[in-house]
Nucleic acid binder design. Structure first.
Lengths: 158, 158
DNA sequence: AAAGATTGAGTTGTCAATCTTA
DNA sequence: TAAGATTGACAACTCAATCTTT
């Protein structure tokens, strides 16, 4: 593994920051444009919508890489807003089962369609070679991020 | 501009979501392990250490892509901790000139030696071809996102 | 005791309004 | 008036301590 030029990391960092800003994605408290939820909440709706229901708060936290306390507060907020219900699991009353309400499902559908539309428009505006490069680069970056994170967890980087 | 495969948009969408989650980008990340400063503060020390001193708070905010109010509070904290001094610019007393103290410089040196930013570690773990692909793809995507956003602003997409 | 969820205190960001100097 | 910095109110994380159920 050859050492990266410092400027490569810098370049990618700036590109990612610019991308996130231009796409309006990731100001911590910022909302999904035109939707009444935050980015984290949008991700939560997506996880719950995809997983057929029945996630516990701990599982949700793990999937979103959040602390369980953050997941707890977020789930409470989403319940207050009528987007999900928290039912105690009858078989193990320590954990919740989080399920989207009708409204939660509808919002997820709407947002998924909107996001997907954005990506289609953006990708459409790229050449095939650029698309291939993007997919290749993102896959490699994702692998690197995951490997590093997993190595960190097991103490190799400490 | 040829039409994208529907699966290209989907693939990129999923990769971006995975990346946001795996990189922990939903968290305003905390402390540099083993050092008495936060990640943002570490970046600030780096900017100040590299730029020969004399940055204003506004310039610092711009480089770190923070709000000027965040930069203001961070500079106050760093001054309280004895890592920098804020001198009013005698030629324009509206702005500060931020300069690292001895301690600030020492800490920057120590961290530069031992700490690489996440992006540097990640990019290091990629091959040169993957890095090139990533930069190319991200640039193209960023361009597409910006073009679309600008077109939206002028009402074309609404 | 252990697992899952909650609460309390602290950190670091945002935005909007305000103060100060040019 | 405008530029640069500050302050206040708030959001969404974190960690540590605690409550509840098994």
């Amino acid at each position: 593994m050859p050492a990266a030029q410092p400027s490569d990391a810098q370049r990618v960092h700036e590109l990612m920051m610019d991308l996130v800003r231009s796409a309006g994605l990731l100001q911590p408290d910022n909302h999904v444009p035109g939707q009444p939820v935050s980015v984290s909440q949008a991700f939560a709706l997506h996880e719950l919508g995809m997983s057929g229901g029945g996630l516990s708060q701990g599982e949700l936290a793990e999937r979103l890489r959040l602390e369980k306390s953050s997941a707890s507060r977020m789930a409470a907020d989403l319940e207050r807003d009528g987007l999900l219900v928290r039912e105690r699991d009858p078989d193990n009353r320590r954990q919740y089962r989080l399920r989207l309400t009708e409204r939660g499902h509808a919002l997820h559908e709407r947002m998924a369609a909107s996001y997907h539309g954005h990506y289609e428009r953006w990708i459409d505006a790229m050449t095939p070679a650029e698309r291939a490069a993007l997919v290749r680069g993102l896959r490699a970056l994702l692998r690197a991020v995951r490997d590093w994170r997993d190595a960190s967890r097991s103490g190799v980087n400490d």
